[in-house]
Each structure stands twice: as structure tokens, then as C-alpha cells.
């Protein structure tokens, strides 16, 4: 049990990932699936960024004087995740555009009903 409470960042990230995944799989409304995808991606970013945290150090912003590099947290994961966030936003935009198109064709955004309609046509 101590493992879970000591690394609370990672535990929180995994729980969020689980919530996002379940939302993606179980709901049949497309908008809820997109929300689930977003929660999943955010959980992974949290997991990665928390790997850069060093206790009791501060954020790597130069205020007036540059300090010793040892007194800052590791900035590499944050910089890498910036790209990841942009990719997640782009995927969300694309998925939303597809949802609008699906609505125009089928007049519903319920994925199960859409699959049924496909079997008939």
C-alpha cells in the first residue's frame, strides 16, 4: 500500500487512464468517446511529466539571476509533452469534424445505431 501513496502522481495517472479507457469503450455516444480519449491522453501526460519532478526544487524559469542547474526540476519531460499535447488536440479536432460529418449522414451520433444502419443498407 505504501507504494501507492508514495508515488501518488503515478497512481493518479493510472486511475485516470483507466477511467478514460472505460469511458471510451462503454459509452456509445461519440462525443463521450472523444471525451474519454482526451482523459486518457491527459493521464499519460501526467504520468510522463511527473517523472521529471525532483522534490523541493523549483520551476526552471530564470527570474533575475541564474542559479545552479541543480536547483531546478528536470525540464525535459515537460518540453517533450508539449508536442504530445499538440498531437492530442489535433486528433480531437479531427475526431470532432468526423462526428459532424457522421451526424449529417445518419442524423444520430450513437455509434451502435450507426453500425446497425450499416448492416441494413
Amino acid at each position: 500500500m505504501e507504494i501507492f501513496t508514495e508515488n501518488y502522481f503515478e497512481t493518479g495517472a493510472i486511475i485516470l487512464f483507466g477511467i478514460g479507457f472505460v469511458t471510451l469503450m462503454l459509452h456509445s455516444n461519440l462525443i463521450k468517446k472523444i471525451i474519454g480519449m482526451n482523459i486518457m491522453d491527459t493521464a499519460i501526460f501526467l504520468f510522463f511529466i511527473s517523472k521529471g519532478y525532483v522534490t523541493n526544487k523549483e520551476a526552471p524559469i530564470v527570474v533575475d539571476i541564474t542559479k545552479n542547474p541543480d536547483s531546478y526540476i528536470n525540464p525535459v519531460p515537460s518540453a517533450l509533452m508539449l508536442t504530445g499535447i499538440v498531437v492530442a488536440v489535433t486528433t480531437t479536432a479531427f475526431a470532432l469534424a468526423l462526428t459532424i460529418k457522421l451526424y449529417k449522414h445518419y442524423n444520430t451520433i450513437d455509434l451502435e445505431k450507426i453500425l446497425e444502419m450499416r448492416e441494413e443498407s
Partner: peptide, 15 residues
């Protein structure tokens, strides 16, 4: 129609 459904499936699974 079938393209849009195929793309949605592909996009979600790829993500």
C-alpha cells in the same frame, strides 16, 4: 458513408 465509419474506427484505435 463507409469511409467516415472506417476512419472513426481507425482514428480511435490508433489513438
Amino acid at each position: 458513408k463507409e469511409n467516415i465509419k472506417a476512419t472513426v474506427k481507425y482514428l480511435i484505435m490508433s489513438t
